[in-house]
Design a protein around this nucleic acid. Structure first.
Lengths: 241, 241
DNA sequence: CGAGGGATTGACAGTAATCAAGGGATGTGG
DNA sequence: CCACATCCCTTGATTACTGTCAATCCCTCG
């Protein structure tokens, strides 16, 4: 952990101990796990909720680790990866603002994925105890928890039907669409390796297809894996072969 | 719906109205959604929970339908299917004894899949109201609900890493292992079309690979899609190419 | 400027999809 | 009881796609 993170965490610790209000007044609370909590509920938080920063490539936790914390994503993107016995790997989900990493520890003591930041992220690190206690003592957390689980399943299903069905080209097109901001056609991609692990294809295939999209004008390179995307054209590609 | 089903449903209706005890004394309750409920909780069930029989090929509900019921699978197998805009289809999950179809209606009013029986099934049809009411009034349902959601996500992730990663041959091998009873090496498969839709490959490819397994002795045909499986050999196949 | 890591491209082999035809079981009607 | 139709499974031939191995390019960083 670098010095900058330590300092940020120090500030966060101060904030947490100086008053639980950090959660109650959270700027993204309407998106977060604690959205429905009321004033008194926050009294139940007796362990610090840290606000931490993690940078691309850093790891949150590993599969099999004892699940001490849940992480709410405030900004950035986290990937969840699983490995096969033969070494094959697959990214099974991406987490973005409002999503929670490590929900499974409320049911099972160990993490079920490798969680890695793939776009600089700001996270809330919530001790498992806190969520368990709130879950026992206030009904206002239940519906948020059910909603998170529901979203995870829904996303997993879409991942399967949209990103793991059809030709490589269709799948890359669907992924690019999913990573695009439809309002301004901007699109920030990940490394070809990660894109491949999301789609279950090799990095070479991914690279070839994205290069082809660039040649066809479906993507316009703006440097740093940042592109302008022709959504309509990509949708046509996604729905044909 | 045929006459036999009507008669069975009639019996089930009689049972349900004759006393809510049908759920309280359910033979598979330890596996079911209501596992943790206590005597008084059953008083909250004011609508009939029907026990229905459905046969292979019959449909439980369609994507987009208004979700009036949840279904607990007592026996048999139900597939959940999703379609792509271009007509492609994909089976995203199989439900077996103890699983619940249609959980999503507790969060969202409409079903999110097509649910179809692929092995003759006995189901409990539970009105959504009943579960919602229980969920509001007794905390003992929460942990079961969270567990169901957790299982659904876990299964979805395994589906992706094990059944949608690697060569067709590996994937078919993994699927066959997953459908095998390890204690007696028996294995009951589905139609080649369904197997293909589970794996995201064509029926021809699936058929070729299963035929090859038969020639190699990994599977021994016992008629009616029933096989003896050499698990060890299949695992070797799954973990190489 | 050189080193290193990711992205791209090429050539080729291997795999899976497609199109098409046969085989085998089941069920129905003559 | 047999002939035939139907449905699904199997197989073949061919094409198209994707993985593999290897080389090169490009950008960033030291």
């Amino acid at each position: 952990m670098n010095v900058e993170v330590q300092i940020l965490e120090k500030q966060a610790i101060d904030k947490a101990w100086s008053g639980i209000s950090s959660c109650e007044n959270c700027g993204i609370r309407h998106l977060a796990l604690f959205a429905d909590l009321e004033h008194d509920d926050f009294e139940l938080i007796h362990k610090p909720v840290l606000e931490i920063n993690k940078y691309t490539g850093e790891n949150l936790y590993n599969e099999g680790d004892d699940g001490e914390f849940l992480y709410t994503v405030r900004s950035g993107i986290v990937k969840l990866t699983q490995y096969l016995p033969d070494g094959g790997q697959r990214i099974v989900r991406l987490l973005r603002t409002g999503d929670v990493a490590g929900l499974e520890v409320l049911v099972n003591p160990q993490y079920e994925h490798f969680a890695t930041v793939i776009r600089d992220a700001q996270l809330c690190q919530i001790p498992r105890d806190v969520v368990e206690r709130l879950n026992k003592e206030t009904p206002r957390l239940h519906s948020q928890l059910l909603t998170r689980w529901h979203n995870a399943v829904k996303r997993a299903d879409e991942w399967l039907t949209e990103l793991s069905t059809g030709s490589s080209k269709s799948r890359v097109a669907r992924l690019v669409i999913g990573l695009s901001d439809k309002s301004d056609h901007s699109c920030h991609l990940f490394s070809r390796e990660d894109l491949g692990a999301i789609l279950g294809v090799t990095t070479e295939t991914t690279s070839r297809i994205i290069a082809e999209f660039k040649r066809d004008g479906a993507l316009k390179d703006q440097g740093k894996n940042h592109f302008w995307a022709d959504i309509q054209l990509l949708e046509n590609i996604a729905n044909q072969n």
